[in-house]
Structure formats: structure tokens, C-alpha cells
Amino acid sequence: MSAPATSERAATTRTRLDPAEVPAGLPRWAYLPAVGGGLFVVLPLVAMGTRVDWSNYGGLVTSESARSALALSLQTATASTLLCLVLGIPMALVLARGRFPGQHLLRSLVLVPLVLPPVVGGVALLSTFGRRGLLGESMEVLGLQIAFSTTAVVLAQSFVALPFLVVSLEGSLRTAGERYDVVAASLGASPATVLRRVTLPLVWPGLVSGTVLAFARALGEFGATITFAGSLQGVTRTLPLEVYLQRETDPDAAVALSLLLVAVAVVVIAATHHRGAGGAAR
């Protein structure tokens, strides 16, 4: 199989890898499946774009239910991302820097939500926070009800998004290594100072990309939300749930909203990837 040299050069300039590394480890045949894979990702999005009723697009995405769903999605995804940061940074630190028995097992467990179908995650969350769940009963006594509330949406989104942040940050922490941490500590810095002044700045690109991944995952969350949180406009019906519901009666609106969701995701990823990718440790 011989690809024309011109197309190879064109493809090379398009990739964002370090140019010095490209030729040595990149066999020509790799372009065929790579281009096929690229089309596989891009084509469905383009196809969806061709289905959009552009003349009515504005009306379709600014209906009351659409605006309410978009606002709820952005709010809950932001809240989930913050929760993921608060829990995920310490988790990644412990997994990457800590030394304790069962560390490997723990790391695998943290990854479970990545491979779990979200609807199973929703069932698991129900068993925990539902009214008859492990913690739900005690919370009911305290007058707290999580099911059918916006809190349930945030919990569902955080559950599926957290591993993305932890994996990304933990990888960066391991790649960065502990050399600078040790040097800083030997100069008298406390662990907290080392974390703030040395470790986190070193892994910043990894933290940013992990945060973006977590946000994007939270924004797209569907299965766990519909299973665990329910679906009510302005309370629990996020944009993906609205898309799924509109499909029933108004396919045009569903496509228009889908495109809106894609646009939001692309903007978020592009904005942060642009800043974060430069020094990304690989």
C-alpha cells in the first residue's frame, strides 16, 4: 500500500505531535485506519448538521424548555466539575504519590464508572442515595430528599465524570515525577507548599485537560440522570434528556438541540485545549 508523499506531508502538518517524532514511529499504513477513524467521528456530526432545519433553528433552540434545559445543564455540569475537582485532586494525589497496600486495587475501582454503562451507575446511585437506599433512609429522617432533585443530577454527573479527572491528573503526576517535590522539600518547603508551588504548576496542563473532560462528560450525562434523578423541566431535565424527549414529538427540535450540545462541547474543549495542550506532559 503506497500513500502519495504529498498526502503524507499534509497529514503530518495537521497532527499536533512533536514533528521530530513523527516519521520514525509512524508507518504509512497507519493513515488509512486513522483517516477512517476520523471520518467515523466527524461524519455523523456532519450528517446531523445536514438534518438541521436552519430556517427555524433560532426558534427551536430558544423555546422555553430548551433554554431551561441548557441553563440547567450548564449549572449542573459546572457544579459537578467543581465537586470533581474538590474530590478528584486529592484522589489523584493519593493514588500517584501515596504508598499504601491495596493501591492498585483502589485505582482500578476508581476507574469503574468509566467502563460502567451510565444506566448501571444510576441504579447504583439509587441503591445508595434513593429513599430506600443505603444512605437515603437516614437522609430521609433528616428531611433530605435527593431523588428527583437537582442535587441528584449533580451526583449522577459527578459519578461518571470523576474518573476522567482522576485518571488524567494521576497520569500527569506520575509523568512529572517527584524530583522537584523532593528538591523543594529539602529546601524546607512544607508538603502543602510543595503541592501549591511546585506540584500543581507542573501538572497544570493535565489538570486542565482532566477538568475539561470531566465537564464535557458531565454535560453529556444521560443514563445515570434519567435513572436516578428523573426528568422535570427546570429541575432535573438537562439538555440530553430534553433531546431524548423532544425526539418523541419534534425530531427537528431534537436535532437542533443536539447540535447545540455539540457546539457547547466543542467550544469548551477548544477553549481549554488551546491553552492546556502546549505543555501537556505525555
Binding site: 428527583f148 434519567i226 428523573g230 426528568s231 422535570l232 423541566q233 432535573t236 434528556l241 431524548y244 418523541e248
Partner: peptide, 9 residues
């Protein structure tokens, strides 16, 4: 008039 906590799919 009903005030459901969720309108399911």
C-alpha cells in the same frame, strides 16, 4: 392539576 416530581420518558 398535578404537580409531579418527575415526568418520565
Amino acid at each position: 392539576t398535578l404537580q409531579p416530581v418527575s415526568e418520565e420518558q
